[in-house]
């Protein structure tokens, strides 16, 4: 087994890539909207990214439409992750609300949003998660809903904890919630992660930093919104999600760095 890199080594790699990305922008390249598929500080990406340039093609009808979901697929109660068991889960109760929009600010209506996360101690209900933090018998960490007429969504959950992983020595993921989204076209399909403001682990995390543009990364951070906090009950976060699909993918950049 190869020796694990230190955080200092990983951070130096992260900084070098970002410096290079800044230079590219100074030379006239567009900022990268998505992460790089080839991002060596995230060790698992090394053998799992395509080395050939993606083949650019026009989407056809299959790609321009999306599967339909509705309340035959999702029970309305599935948006509350705190009521799935007999007791209250441990942790800080929060709501995460926002809108799913396309690039023209049109709502993505009546479409499926799926969410999953670790519990307050940073442990997933997954047999391969060996982090020695307690499981919470009152928290599974899975939610689903169908967006409303204005593309709006709202989940009630608890704030997930950060957790260690084995990318490098003393590697910790910032607290995050996984989101899976469908747009109006299959090309808009997106799986991503929402983060929480002010997390001290951002600068150290190669998954977050794989998005080399600071403004693009910041789009993954929910904002604390006191108007969404419910007295005596929960703290509110707002996070809007934009699915532009094909229009955003023309600037794929990994080819230049393969």
């Amino acid at each position: 087994m190869t020796e694990q890199a230190s955080q200092e080594e990983i951070s130096a790699e992260i900084e070098a890539i970002e410096a290079e990305a800044r230079l590219d922008i100074a030379r006239g390249s567009a900022a990268e909207l998505h992460p790089r598929r080839n991002y060596p500080p995230y060790r698992s990406s090394v053998l799992r990214h395509p080395t050939h340039e993606l083949v650019r093609v026009d989407p056809e009808e299959v790609e321009r439409v999306s599967p339909a979901f509705g309340h035959t697929d999702v029970n309305v109660l599935e948006s509350d992750l705190t009521i799935q068991h007999s007791g209250e889960p441990l942790g800080e109760r929060i709501t995460v609300s926002g809108r799913v929009l396309d690039g023209e600010a049109r709502p993505v209506r009546h479409q499926l949003v799926e969410l999953w996360q670790a519990n307050a101690g940073g442990r997933y209900v997954h047999k391969r998660d060996q982090h020695p933090a307690p499981l919470d018998p009152n928290f599974t960490g899975v939610g689903r809903l169908i967006t409303g007429d204005d593309g709006e969504y709202s989940f009630t959950t608890i704030k997930p904890g950060p957790y260690p992983w084995r990318n490098h020595l003393n590697a910790w993921r910032p607290a995050h919630i996984h989101f899976s989204l469908f747009g109006t076209a299959f090309t808009q399909r997106l799986i991503t992660q929402m983060y929480f403001p002010g997390d001290p682990l951002f600068a150290l995390d190669p998954i977050y930093q794989s998005i080399t543009d600071p403004a693009a990364r910041a789009r993954l951070i929910g904002s604390y919104d006191h108007s969404l906090s419910v007295p005596e009950f929960s703290l509110g976060y707002r996070w809007d999600i934009v699915l532009t699909g094909p229009k955003s993918t023309w600037m794929e950049s990994e080819e230049a760095h393969a």
């Binding site: 998505h34 992460p35 999953w116 998660d129 995050h176 996984h178 799986i191 991503t192 789009r219």
Partner: peptide
């Protein structure tokens, strides 16, 4: 109204 960036599905989606 700019694309929300992607992030990996990670290893722990199996229960979700």
């Amino acid at each position: 109204f700019v694309q929300t960036p992607s992030q990996t599905v990670g290893p722990f989606y199996g229960f979700a």
